[in-house]
Amino acid sequence: MEETVSTSPERKSFLQRWLPHPWTTVSLVLLWLALQNSVSNGNLLVALLLGITLPIYTSSFWPQRQTLRNPFTVFELVVIVMWDIGVANVQVAWLVLFKDPSQIRSRWVSVPLEIVSSEALTALAAIVSLTPGTISSDFSDDNRFLLVHCLDLEDADSLIDSVKNRYEKRLKRILI
């Protein structure tokens, strides 16, 4: 493992050393401005200071530089996830209020995965957990399967199909 994480400074370019994670910098700046709830010169200065120093200090914990491809797909994915959260909320609320608890078919489903990067896996697990009715519980030791617990599910194939076609397909286009 030690060989893969190179710490020699001469092998990194100027940008790689001072902006190891550009997207983290952008989101930290936006986050700080949103926390202050106003955009002024002083706020912008502190935001830039935080956005540049924090990624440099934490870059040794996060050696690979992750690139976001297809920014439009990010937008598409967010809209789809929001829509699914709304629909699933109503379904699960109906289930909780009116269905006999002994009739609820809770079960585990093992979803085979194609994405490999830890950022993409984290995003997929978070999306599955945020949608009511499904909770991502564990990964297999080789990160090839995601264990999902479903509140009420008739056939496992429809869930695997929706996770793969709705979320994973788009995540694969954004992260590798």
Binding site: A93, I104, P132, H149
Partner: peptide, 18 residues
């Protein structure tokens, strides 16, 4: 209302989202 631990875990996800 829900009967088991894992099914009870599904309930708060509604409160946190919608």
């Amino acid at each position: 209302k829900l009967p088991s631990f894992m099914s009870r875990l599904h309930a708060p996800s509604k409160s946190t989202t919608l």
